[in-house]
Design a protein around this nucleic acid. Structure first.
Lengths: 230, 230
DNA sequence: CGGGATCCCTTAGGATACTG
DNA sequence: CAGTATCCTAAGGGATCCCG
């Protein structure tokens, strides 16, 4: 344990000693969406070995980042207020990492929680404030997220808000491939996304996709590496 | 290599695959201060094994984060523009980790580069804008940093700007222990810091320490864990 | 079935020595 | 000074098993 300390009196080092181990920040990423059971976390991070998930959760508890909350039956893990302070870190990482995502790999999955945090990352409140309040229902594979944008900001909920009638709550319902990435980066315009089949409008006003592209936008950094050599 | 991939199409994952390995972000932290030679990096990160430093630098180059720059004699490592985009990540980590720093440990060192980034983290431009332009010269152990604050922001330089006459450039010159941490967190007021010996005014107007404490401030988060059990 | 604990094996990473 | 080359420990990966 002594050998694995960085040995510096520094904020960055303190942070890395608490959440710098493998998988730790991905657990935090999912918990930023909401409290999760052990099994939820495992489902959201399929490649994590169960012993690692177990030890990370213990470490995060000891660090005061995560808390076990007993439930009616079972229990959930939840971020403490202190742990919630990691949102800035996760969003900053997501923003920077967005540039290097490139195309979706064969073995790369997309999860509801990672998509939720991705939309939170891409959301630009300043732009959204000048828009009318809008509800988007986005389908990506079998993931359904409802994005509610208003002057207060963004709320992401899992599933459709109106399970019966599609247009009950959402102003725009659309299905997208993970190439929605290119809409958010601005590489693909909303029109050509619809034309090219990346986006399929299921209900509502297709013109709202323009508004969506403005509210959810991440500038690609110059010099970003698109393809990592393997 | 396949086993060490997180296997998710997600910005946070992409970022962690590029800079999430041990020591990587600390190398980036130091390079954010300026280009550094291999030996400089080693000096700034005394606990890093040389083979790890070597492989990290190669990985960071391949990721497009770091670039080798040949010099008149020798060479330096420098961040690419893309790598410089990690500043937000490092500052967010530093801000969050600041809460958990507590007292300086026996085996914990402070380096010029980590202090430089710490001041950049604690700097609050909004407050500083309402202050007159000021130059602080801070001595911490044998580290000397010159902090120039004006309406454009903060510039941190190593050493004294005026090697001959102490007051030539700096409005306030003071020596501080690493407990300067408590001034930045607000736990220790400037007056009591001087009274208690945490800060020793070497030159200039002692009242400027109040202004310093306002310009460099990090709010401690509630629920932060101060002492990590070992 | 949720919530882990245990096992074994591979490999990253720590310590040190050595070289162009 | 700027890195390789070793050797070795311990963290992480993968599968399986356990317990209420």
């Amino acid at each position: 344990m002594t050998a694995r300390n960085y040995g510096q009196y520094c904020g960055v080092v303190s942070a890395l000693e608490l959440v710098g181990e493998r998988w730790a920040l991905l657990i935090v990423r999912d918990l930023l969406v909401g409290p999760r059971r052990y099994g939820d976390l495992k489902k959201g991070l399929p490649r994590i070995p169960t012993n690692i998930l177990s030890t990370r959760l213990k470490e995060l508890q000891q660090a005061g980042v995560v808390r076990r909350v007993p439930l009616a039956h079972g229990l959930v893990y939840d971020l403490t207020e202190y742990g919630r302070g990691l949102e800035d870190v996760v969003l900053a990482l997501g923003r920077w990492g967005f540039q290097a995502m490139g195309e979706q790999g064969e073995d790369e999955i997309v999860t509801p929680d990672s998509m939720t945090m991705a939309f939170r990352t891409a959301f630009t409140p300043d732009v959204a404030r000048s828009q009318p309040a809008t509800v988007y229902e986005v389908h990506i594979g079998d993931i359904v997220l409802t994005l509610s944008v208003d002057e207060l900001g963004l709320t992401v909920a899992r599933g459709s808000t109106t399970p019966g009638i599609a247009t009950g709550g959402a102003n725009l319902v659309f299905a997208a491939s993970p190439r929605i990435h290119e809409i958010i980066s601005g590489e693909l315009s909303p029109e050509s996304a619809i034309a090219g089949g990346t986006v399929r409008i299921l209900d509502g006003d297709a013109a709202l996709l323009e508004q969506f592209a403005l509210a959810f936008h991440l500038e690609p950094a110059p010099g970003a590496v698109r393809a990592i050599a393997v």
